[in-house]
């Protein structure tokens, strides 16, 4: 039931946009085209970055380092209920959006989108953002040098996010 409702989320939003277009008050379809063109430009624009990072992540996985690292942290991670396969995502998520998208998609390919690892990765991906990048850009844009307690707080929220995502998936997808 919930599954059914949530799968209607996107169609409903699309339909609301359709209602606006019918109202004829403003050239809404032209706005749609304008926005869609921007979206397409963004998606294609990040491709070169994505190619570099996807190759890097794939090499990391193939070299066996990922498995080695995963094996190293797995006892500690297992105690917190965090699958150690998530390592490439956890390393890249705070730093870069493209890198974590690459890591996320390679996780889905490797373990399957509906596996426990894939579900945890999806929830982490959906409820966190590129922490260091955000803090860096926001503060440097107005010339702030001392960010005080910003990074400790953001790290705490990120750690909670990882832990809570895995816990939630364990309960939700039983």
């Amino acid at each position: 039931m919930l599954e059914y409702i949530s799968s209607l989320a996107i169609p409903v939003v699309v339909c609301i946009a359709g209602v606006f277009m019918l109202s004829h008050k403003k050239p809404y379809f032209e706005s749609f085209i304008e926005g869609a063109r921007d979206g397409l430009r963004t998606a294609v624009g990040i491709l070169p970055t994505l190619i570099a990072l996807m190759i890097a992540i794939n090499m990391l996985n193939a070299s066996g380092i990922t498995d080695l690292l995963a094996a190293a942290i797995s006892p500690a991670a297992a105690r917190l209920g965090i699958p150690s396969e998530l390592i490439p995502l956890l390393i890249t998520r705070p730093i870069s959006g493209s890198a974590s998208t690459a890591a996320y998609s390679s996780l889905l390919e490797r373990y399957g989108a509906d596996s426990f690892v894939g579900l945890c990765a999806s929830v982490i991906m959906g409820s966190s953002d590129t922490m260091l990048y955000v803090i860096g850009v926001y503060f440097s844009s107005v010339g702030i040098k001392k960010s005080r307690y910003a990074i400790p707080c953001a790290v705490a929220v990120m750690l909670f996010c990882v832990f809570f995502s895995c816990l939630l998936c364990r309960i939700w997808f039983k």
Binding site: V13, V14, I16, A17, F20, M21, K26, Y28, S31, F32, I33, E34, G35, A36, R37, D38, G39, L40, T42, A43
Partner: peptide, 13 residues
């Protein structure tokens, strides 16, 4: 991404 950016442009307007 195109679809979503287009729809959000409509909402923005």
């Amino acid at each position: 991404m195109s679809l979503w950016c287009g729809i959000m442009k409509v909402f923005e307007r």
